[in-house]
Design a protein around this nucleic acid. Structure first.
Lengths: 149, 149
DNA sequence: GTATATGCAAAGGGTTTGCACGGTT
DNA sequence: AACCGTGCAAACCCTTTGCATATAC
């Protein structure tokens, strides 16, 4: 029997290619990865793979439900394999640290958005910004952006 | 007595310039505006103003607490005057429509982030993505992105 | 054999930066 | 007079696209 991911691609009319396999494996291995990071990982095996292929491949893999992405900072999005536990990223606007918390922390929130506005929330898609516990206790006008990653 | 906004700038060691006044007025007038839109509005009065000045000015105005910004789509951020009612943007990933809901809809959510993780949430900074009530009732594989604005 | 995927290079949107000039204090 | 703010142009990051070639089916 073919691997599940091959099945998924074929079902949606896509072809099986080495690039698609490698990108998917890189996302699974990295657990959190930007397109650039995924490319770097893929190129450890296949140096010839191109960034635009990574972009196109991630789009396809997302289409068929094998990966998802989330926006962390203002920069490149982060991709996850779908079998990762669904989580929300809390981004500290001062120190830039990212905290992952279970998606169902937002359950009452998403429930009321559904009830009051009929809106079906994809809570993990976009990060929640704010200040982490550490940075809240710091003096006000201390330089932000301690860690740019 | 000087206007409040002039006070604000001076307090933080910034100078008063026509550009800063015009950008602030444009943000207040537009209520929701991207840097480009703000520039267009400013240029109705002063054609010579430059985009990079708008960016730099918005940063200053945000620094001193006269404006805030929120990320709606993947594109340019939207600026608001601080006296606007604080609201969350709900973005439909299919039709791209944006729904504004009161920020305190998220009160139980932000409260539990504070209690459980010590995180002080800035809920209005980033939009919540998902599907609006209309698009949920549509068939699955209908082309998305009906309205690119 | 035919349609789809890929690599490459170029273009695109949004934003930031270096620099010289001009305006505010 | 000193410094800050501005305009301009170039550079920047991330992403998308056109096209010819290669590959999966």
């Amino acid at each position: 029997m073919a691997e599940a991911w091959e099945q998924r691609l074929r079902e949606h009319g896509f072809r099986i290619t080495p690039q698609r396999q490698l990108v998917l494996e890189a996302v699974e291995y990295l657990r959190h990865g930007t397109p650039e990071e995924i490319l770097a990982e893929v190129q450890r095996t296949a140096t010839g793979v191109n960034l635009s292929t990574v972009y196109r491949t991630l789009e396809v893999l997302e289409d068929v439900g094998l990966v998802t992405h989330a926006h962390i900072g203002h920069g490149a999005p982060t991709y996850h394999a779908v079998d990762e536990e669904l989580h929300i990223h809390l981004v500290c606007d001062r120190c830039r640290k990212v905290l992952s918390v279970p998606a169902d922390t937002a359950l009452t929130f998403t429930t009321s958005l559904a009830k009051d506005f009929g809106f079906a929330t994809d809570i993990a898609h976009v990060s929640v910004h704010g200040l982490c516990s550490n940075c809240q206790s710091l003096p006000r006008d201390v330089p932000a952006e301690i860690d740019h990653h």
